[in-house]
Design a protein around this nucleic acid. Structure first.
Lengths: 146, 146
DNA sequence: TATTGTTATACTCTATAACTATA
DNA sequence: TATAGTTATAGAGTATAACAATA
């Protein structure tokens, strides 16, 4: 046993948390990817569709996906070729192209949204869920906003 | 990767957990990537180094990274060209190449390992950490093993 | 001049299939 | 024949820089 002033246990569990969060992140991402693949979407494509809650300029899409604007061109090209999204020149400013979902795009969007919700069960009781939410929010506050 | 925004109201805590875990996963991955980039490593390169706790056949590396063996060739090529890892033909079976860290590779490995540990604080007390570990483990059990 | 989006370029990661060398 | 690893190929994502159109 060590002196109480040096939180040995805390260090041990800190590492454990890092490992668990890492594992959870990995599996969660893998889950999302496989679910997206079922819809014939890559991760970034699914993310783009999920963020398209209203007509959005390409630049804003890049902002939400946190990637360079030049990438969005390619991702949108592929989605547009499948008829899921559409580029529309903004009336007031012809430099801007707004991205909108097609009818089929909206159908896919609903299925994408359902993916995260399907994770919900998590085998936790209501009170466990509340507590987990609290702790996750606190843990989140320790990470850079990115 | 998924939604950035956290709902202000939440009675539906299951969905909220899905969003929080999603957000945590996203930020955690982003954090790991930027930290790895500081070491001039990509995510997969850092992951490979992290898993190299002993001489490991290429095939086992692929297993640990959960990717096809053909990918490992390229990742290892790049690490080897930087002198971080080394391929060694196994004495007993000349088909097998075991991957080992060089001295410099071990130094980098220690820095990679430190990344996850640095996440440890998480601004949680000891008991909060214990509880979070419990809940994370339970939540993990709901996800496919991948 | 500044901004929006695209194109050109170059890398990394990904899987599948064909190939080699060993067993 | 079977296994370990590589190579060939092709597609997707990433960023930087240069560019056109528009403001």
């Amino acid at each position: 046993m060590y002196a109480a002033s040096i939180p040995t246990m805390a260090v041990a569990s800190a590492e454990q948390i890092a490992r668990l969060v890492s594992e959870l992140a990995r599996r969660f991402a893998a889950y999302l990817d496989t679910q997206a693949a079922d819809l014939h979407l890559t991760g970034p494509q699914a993310a783009l569709i999920r963020h398209l809650d209203r007509p959005l300029p390409m630049k804003d899409v890049a902002g939400r996906l946190r990637c360079d604007a030049s990438n969005v061109t390619g991702i949108v090209d592929r989605l547009e070729s499948r008829g899921l999204v559409e580029r529309r020149v903004r009336a007031g400013d012809r430099r801007v192209k707004e991205l909108v979902l097609t009818g089929e795009g909206r159908r896919v969007q609903r299925r994408v949204a359902a993916i995260a919700e399907r994770l919900s069960g998590l085998e936790l009781s209501d009170s466990e869920q509340s507590r987990l939410i609290e702790l996750l929010e606190k843990a989140l506050s320790a990470l850079p906003p990115a």
